[in-house]
Design a protein around this nucleic acid. Sequence first.
RNA 1: GCCACCGUAACUCAGUUGGUAGAGUGCGAAAUUCGUAAUUUCGAAGUCAGCAGUUCGAUCCUGCUCGGUGGCUCCA
Length: 573
Amino acid sequence: AVKELFPDVKITIGPTIENGFYYDFDLDQSFSDEILEKIENKMKELAKLKQEIVRHEVSTGEAVDIFSKLGESYKVEIIEQINPDDTITMYKQSSFTDLCRGPHVSNTSKIKHFKLLSTSGAYWKGDEKNKMLQRIYGTVFSTKDALKTHLHNIEEAKKRDHRKLGKELKLFTFDDEVGPGLPLWLPNGAVIVEELENLAKEYEKNGGYDLVRTPHLTKGALYEKSGHLDHYKESMYPAMDVDGTEYYVKPMNCPHHHKIYAALPKSYRDLPVRLAEYGTCYRYEKSGQLFGLMRVRSLQMNDAHIYCTKDQFKNEFLKVCNMYLKYFEIFGIERYSMRLSLHSAEELGKKYVDEPELWLETEKWVREALIEGGFDFEEVPGEAAFYGPKIDVQVWSAIGKEFTLATNQVDFAVPSKFNLNYVDEDGESKTPLCIHRAPLGTHERFIGFLIEHFGGDFPLWLAPVQAVVLPLSDKFTDYAKLVVNSLKADGLRVKLNDRADKIGSKIRQAELEKINYMLIVGEKESFDGTVSIRKRFEGDLGVEDLDVFKQKLIEEIKNRRLAHRKETATETE
RNA sequence: GCCACCGUAACUCAGUUGGUAGAGUGCGAAAUUCGUAAUUUCGAAGUCAGCAGUUCGAUCCUGCUCGGUGGCUCCA
């Protein structure tokens, strides 16, 4: 269809992807929405024509001739990279010939239920130094219903988008005068931040971590030593001159933690040393990269560095992995994948520190630890940190983007650069290994993810407002205040809605704000010392003694119980 | 950073084929005193993202800047 509408277009590649396909074209104009619609209509026309799609097998030489004559230089480039002895398959549909491994449907009428979704630029061969091509994304299904369901799901997912819910629930905001990628936590969002920090502190203290604090600014020399200026300068905020010395805002916490380790001499008896901090970092992410809370320029990382001996490594590494699992259980995170990110031999000395043996050795340890711990994981070469292999936990945002939520890395390189050491049993000075870990990732990304994960319906312990007290009329405001104060005295986050609205309206407001509990008080309640309880989604739960109910709330919060989500009418439709 | 698109009240959006704007929600005031998802009336609120150009006149056309969106590239 594109070839018919734009005879000058050069075709490149067009694979299937999850939930659809794309095709990249070299064209000196871009596809507008109107053009996309025209292409879709042309596709429908062609489908009706029932054009046959015929497979041809040719040699690479013949294929080069054919595509050269057609002026399809990108196809020629692809064929030239294929083994010359291989057979090339082409598919011909009317006057159009494409290079394709296949298989294909037998004729165009088989394609009925499709939709072109969007356009974008995309670099040829995914390299930003190459020409930018015009990409069309689309999707196709075997039945009309399946297509409709898919499109409906896309719309539903947009409703859970953390950027939309973040605004509606007043969790965070961005301001032009503050700067892109620099989120401001509103009071509601700050509550979630605080609860996460409490969770982390609780688990880290129990896990034998020591909490530390470090400055946001540091001399450039530290990052020269760590190697970060070498590897990541372009994504650090530019240096500031302070009395003739270059200072940077910190893009990560590791060097500071290394310095804390080094501040006092260590014996093997001190190891493992576990230093934890919710560290604030700044990274100059490219403008096109920013994405709501998921990719920002200021971030607070659930960071910690564990310094241990080789013998302790496996145990420490598994403990960290288990901490991840415990967190995932708390949040009910079930859809994730663990990725073992390895180095690639070709990039040793460039992207990765040039220690081939140490790479293989540490990768082996990590692999063994994962297998021993019974974790499912996928190995991906070329994704490691420059100083060692890592485990990334991948999750997906509501609109389908993949993100690394948490990470657990081995560092065999930087400790020696920092002259970190400990005196071993035999009196020798040795260099410890370092495990970098961030099971809750950053506040920004983790909360962005949680907003979508819960669809804004936070469990009670995370909810910015846990209960709202709704007096039926002015006459019961005094009692309502008494209820509010009683709950607040026990640390509960409670609001009063004493506006002159009808009870139905107040309930509606509370439901829209996704407040867990609504406590309705009128004549009966104020007389009996009770509250009439209504729970989000679940409706009227009846009347209960105030103190009894309060104890139940406190219990629910203490257990960090998950909200069991009921599908609402709008979700199932 | 690259390709494309978008930017109208606090929010969601309508509108002007160039003659300086409107709705709903929210906000403020008054009345209503109410039993489980929307009480009524009145009112305030916008340099139409910013700057420049074209024009008698620009929110509308053009350019640049800023910010956002969909992708690409990148992610210690």
